[in-house]
Design a protein around this nucleic acid. Structure first.
Lengths: 136, 136
DNA sequence: GCGCAGATGATAATGATTGTCATCTGCGTT
DNA sequence: AACGCAGATGACAATCATTATCATCTGCGC
């Protein structure tokens, strides 16, 4: 047990991973993998699509980025605060707001316990139209 | 205005739609479209996969079936109660429990309103391991 | 500088879902 | 009971995001 995080600590510092990470920090919003790949290419960074997917997957596993899924099924990635939270998404312009939800957390846990479920996790997404889009 | 639900009331009673509907009533659980199609074929009902998808889509639009999405992105269909509710799903055996959540509903609405969002909808899924799977 | 495990990327493969389109069939009308 | 047509069907092709392959490359510890 010399290396507690043995399996996880094997990632290298590559140009590509850094590029993806930097881009996520820049566009502070949810983007698809394909989208991010396009942006990288557009700015001249030469990164393969496969690599973008892999980088995002790795970062997601490490808790460095959030993954959410659109009703259509596509997954979106974003650099988010590390703590558990959910998202409020404008279905028109895509603007997102992080929302903390102690209410839901405890509700979900309670409901699950009442039914004898253990090892609970949950997903919550809220969709709506933001003020700008509604009035514009 | 002889037909108030003009646009929606155009569905015909076909053998195929009935077969899909009957199967859903039988297996009271979430199934993929492909899965349902396989079951129909297995029992001798001759129905095209495309038609199964269309039937499910139509029924979902009409609120007759529930659609949920696995973390992997595949969508599952189930005949459910008409009222709005969410699901508690065993990640091991797939058993599902319908849960009503006035708490979340109001929470989601309140959060969204506070941020100026309108026309709110939301998705909530709770995953866990049911007692049977946890002890077994 | 060496060497190799991990990383990359062009490409093919996968797999669920949707589009196409010629044909068929409820079902209201005649 | 036959008619006609809008909606329905289904075999097949197409899409599209994501993943698998695999030969090659490169951090980075030695």
């Amino acid at each position: 047990m010399r290396l507690p995080d043995d399996a996880a600590g094997r990632q290298r510092n590559t140009r590509q991973r850094h590029a993806v990470s930097a881009l996520l920090a820049e566009v502070n919003d949810f983007r698809t993998a394909q989208d991010l790949h396009g942006l990288l290419r557009g700015r001249g960074d030469r990164v393969g699509l496969t690599t973008v997917y892999r980088a995002l997957q790795t970062m997601a596993d490490a808790g460095e980025v959030d993954v959410m899924r659109l009703p259509s099924g596509e997954q979106l990635f974003r650099q988010c605060s590390r703590s558990h939270h959910h998202h409020l998404v404008c279905r028109r312009c895509g603007r997102t707001v992080e929302v903390a939800g102690p209410t839901v957390e405890s509700w979900a846990d309670r409901i699950a316990s009442e039914h004898g479920f253990v090892d609970i996790s949950h997903t919550v997404e809220i969709f709506g139209t933001c003020r700008a889009c509604a009035t514009g």
